[in-house]
Amino acid sequence: MTASAHILQKGSVTRVMLLVLACLLPGVLAYAWQFGWGIVINLVWASLLALALEALALRLRGYPLKPFLSDGSAIVTAWLLALSLPPLAPWWLLLVGMIFAIGVAKHLYGGLGQNIFNPAMVGFAVLIISFPVQMTQWSAPLALAAHSLSFGESLSFVFGGTLPAGVALDAVVSATPLDTVRTGLLQQHTLDEIHSASQIFGSIGGVGSEWVAAAYLLGGIALWALRIVPWQVPVAFLAGIWLTAGFLHWADAGRYAAPWFQLAAPSAMLGAFFIATDPVSGATTPRGRIIFGLGAGFLTVIIRVFGGYPDGVAFAILLMNLCVPLIDAYTQPPVFGEAKKK
């Protein structure tokens, strides 16, 4: 006998997940436009893997397939991981990543709604620790690439590892702007020297990638307008990056890149609107979300600048996921009619 409302508003988990995917589309299109077919192949491959792995995990755990496969959460995880990897990454990289994302981070923790870590970011973290070489071979922006791979050529590179005759690896891959800066600084160059030595830098971020970041921002704003994500997390996340990077840049402009440069990396925008906003592994109170976002933004820059990895978004978000129960417990807003404590 139920006592809860006998009527339900239209809406479902599936709808939420589909809207997230829809809002990712501008970013995906910009990505394909600037970097070629690789990302499309990645997304399709990741989606297939996600469905297969999700089905397998559900079957092993004795859960019904239909309601859980159709909730769309596995596809969202797949897209987020695929968008975080180099577009021309070998096929097995996504396989390994998705096994950890869906199998370990999601289902070993109890499946939908139970995971304490963002599954896509767990997959990413495993990959970047285990396969640093493959994870830093980013596609070169088409504008700079000596050769632009056709769809068929991309497919055979991803699944067979073979490039067309006469095309060297250097012609299709390059380091990301963030990575270029890191490597340059390690070699004791100044930022100005690094900038003038490489063509990868665009007007504020990297060639091509700044467009992708802008498209993510657009999709992210749509996601907020649709009331799927709260404003607190993305705003605080971006503010955290901006403030931390700004402070470092102010302290030593020769060593630390400008805050706009940090924000123009696609990972920052993807992280701010689509990853840090994951409700399952994120904070739920308004103040908690601001703390969560600020912390993740701060850690992102710290890891980018002082850490051993070219990007820090994944680790920053995973670390903040750890703090969520504590943040939530200490930021409970007053209930109706509760005297403000102090």
């Binding site: 139920t2 006592a3 755990r61 004795g62 859960y63 019904p64």
Partner: peptide
């Protein structure tokens, strides 16, 4: 009031 039956498993 009884504990609501939460049946996810088949």
């Amino acid at each position: 009031w009884k504990y609501p039956v939460f049946r996810l498993k088949q």
